[in-house]
Amino acid sequence: MNTRGMNIRPAEPAGKELRPARTNATRQKLFEASMELIGERGAAGVTVDEIAAAAGVSKGTVYYNFGSKADLIAQLLRHGVDILKARLASTGTGTSAGAGMVPGEAASGSGPRPDPLLAMEAMIGQAMDFMAEYPSFARLWVSENWRTPSEWQDTFAVLRAELLEIIGAAIESVAAVYPVDETISRGSLETAIFGACFVVGLDRQTYNPERTRNQSVAAIMAIMRGYVVK
């Protein structure tokens, strides 16, 4: 279900402010250490002591910055999504390598308009690179996101909406240039691409490492190209 426009509760418990990490470097170390441990045993099977030791920081530092294990995981989910969002947004203009002008459009004085389909292809490629770099994050997302109830349900709802918004903007850019099938639900299309990025990326890392990045991207782009009317 598309969550954009819904009144979603904040990722943190009401009235509680999480302590900011002292540095982004500390947060990144904790993120990488926790993802490795969670990938091995799941979120419930990992302790704060283990995460702190793996990251090379004291347990006190973790509690000072985050307050509790639940808040730590919530903030590390946020950190991972922020990394992913930055990578997706970096391709949003369609100016990445290989992006060409819109088919059939003559160059104007302001220069050719980049092809939004190629921009989306580059965006999906960035998602595949992220899944390859952080497969344990994808496992945590897939395993916990649809668990009911989940300790981080509110956090997932907020982060999911943010990612869907980026995908929705990319779809909107395509629809502004190409004729599209208006019978297809825009929210369902966003969700299909969103889910495919996680599932195809994770499946490639876990079961089919022989599949190339480009093969994975092409499979997901087939969803989007089916939306464009020939």
Rank of each mutant, 00 (worst) to 15 (best):
F130A: 06
E190K: 13
S185L: 01
I8L: 12
W141F: 12
R147K: 10
T3C: 05
Q205Y: 08
T183F: 07
G92Q: 15
D203G: 13
T91K: 09
V46L: 02
A25R: 11
G92M: 14
P20M: 00
L30K: 02
G56F: 03
S96F: 06
S188D: 15
D181P: 08
A106L: 12
S136R: 13
T206Q: 15
I220E: 00
G60C: 04
V62T: 04
A89S: 15
R78S: 14
K69R: 14
A122W: 08
N145V: 13
A192E: 02
L118H: 05
A14G: 02
L77E: 08
G104K: 11
T183H: 10
S173Y: 03
Q75D: 15
E105G: 09
W146C: 03
A157S: 09
G109I: 11
A55R: 03
G94R: 12
A55H: 07
E162K: 05
G195Y: 10
G42W: 13
G226K: 08
R22W: 06
V200L: 08
L37K: 08
N24M: 13
R22F: 07
I38M: 11
P135S: 01
P149Y: 14
A70V: 10
P209C: 00
V174H: 03
S136F: 09
A97Q: 04
M221V: 09
T91Q: 06
E190L: 02
S110L: 12
I73G: 00
E210A: 12
M128R: 09
T3V: 13
M1K: 02
G109H: 08
A25G: 07
T91A: 06
A138Q: 05
G104Q: 06
A25Y: 10
A25M: 04
N65I: 05
S143M: 06
R211S: 11
N65A: 15
T95M: 13
L76V: 02
Y227K: 12
A169V: 14
E151D: 14
T47I: 02
K85W: 04
R87Q: 15
R9T: 05
R87W: 10
Q28M: 11
E36K: 15
L118F: 05
W146L: 11
E210V: 07
R113K: 11
A53P: 06
A218C: 01
S34G: 03
T95A: 11
S110V: 06
R78Q: 14
V158H: 00
A157D: 11
S173C: 06
I184A: 08
P209D: 01
V180H: 02
E121V: 06
R4A: 08
S185D: 13
A169S: 14
I184L: 13
S34D: 02
Y64R: 12
G39S: 01
Q215G: 10
E210D: 13
E12S: 03
D129P: 07
A86S: 14
A219R: 07
T148N: 07
